[in-house]
Amino acid sequence: MPDKILREITSLLLPFIQMYGIYVVFHGHLSPGGGFAGGMVLGVSLVLYILVFGLDSCLRKIPHHLSSALESFGTLWYAAVGFVGLLRGASFLMNKGAGIDVGTPGELFSGGLIFIITIGVGVKVASTMLSLFYTLVEED
């Protein structure tokens, strides 16, 4: 079990790391980063939580089957959003050509489907990091 300083600093720092990850995911269409980079930051924050507070404490919050389910959900979400373009009579993953309102460039809620897809990618990457770590640790 790590010492008190490590635990206190981590519990102080963890909300900021996760908030930064969510910020990068949500601003994927405006600023550098996106679903992959933001999801990676979120996943690293969860791995940091495991390293400091122990595996069992994280398994109680996010079980292995839940992180695997979230992983599949991210991929299916991407595909389901892609079919919106087909349903509106255009090609797969079509955004503005399918008649979707893309809003004003530079605002947070703009970009049409890209904003929605990026959230799915972020969930997918973050849960993949967690599942990968669970699989590596539970191997023994």
Binding site: P32, G33, F36, A37, V41, G43, V44, M129
Partner: peptide, 12 residues
């Protein structure tokens, strides 16, 4: 790429 490298390379 800098954000991704910092998270993936250093972290994971």
């Amino acid at each position: 790429l800098a954000i991704t490298e910092a998270a993936a390379g250093i972290g994971v």
